[in-house]
Amino acid sequence: MSAACLDIRSLSAVLPNGQRVLRSVSLSVQPGEVRALVGESGAGKTMIGKAVLGVLPPSVRIAEGDMLLEGEDLGQLQPKARRTLIGARTALIPQDPLTALNPSRRIGPQMTDRLVRILGWSDERADNRIRQLLDEVQIRDPERVLKSYPHELSGGMRQRVLIAAAFAAEPRLIVADEPTTALDVTVQKQILRLIAQLQRDHGTAILFVTHDLGVVAKISQRVSVLYAGKVVEEAETAALFAAPQHPYTRALMAATPRYTDPLASLRPVDDAVLAGLAAEIAAADQAWRRPHG
């Protein structure tokens, strides 16, 4: 079997007070696959993405586990080599397309800079590449967009720009952190379709973070369900929807809006399920604390 594009093995991250925010997370993304990571807000989805991309907040420390990017153990690399590897092989499609673009720089230089300065492309090659990508994300007037400042574009346009930028350097892995959450409902679908389209065309693996099971069903091949920093279930997407194993997954599904039964979506997660989860987390922490003081 060839190396996974991303292989996270038993990753734990702790806060200064010793509390774990990630609880022995294992997760892999195969080359060219869309791997969904689903969980409610605060579950630690963004934290996993940041760990992979090497931008965890200073207060969060990795206490255990390995992360392998195309077979290379990130933990074994010197900081500079790690940065170079992450920069060359990965990209991020962020949650908020407004704050992800620098307000005082025009779109054009922001997009080409990375190709020219980091990857050493010629200006012309970078420019051609960016225009090709803008075309792929269906931006019809690239001239205007390249000359614009971010605030002159709509949220949907900004997210298209960021998607184009993410694919521009042909990364092997893209982390998409709730890329549609901050957008209007009408735009969400288009953006989701675009990401799926570019993913197929470029064969890029995506770790797709979302809190929305509807999105999971549409875009991913496999899915991990995260609760309180712990993976509670992992399955092929089709299998998960056909037969969810974990009670929490079933509760999440029951809480996902359905046109046929809108009231059902208002059902909160059952108390019994929450109690079961709490016990599971406590047991996991107990087991973890023994060797880790």
Binding site: L53, G54, R83, A88, A91, R117, I118
Partner: peptide, 13 residues
């Protein structure tokens, strides 16, 4: 603390 600074970190600046 802005995301574009984080993006630049990820890109390898």
């Amino acid at each position: 603390r802005m995301d574009y600074v984080e993006n630049a970190r990820i890109a390898g600046y």
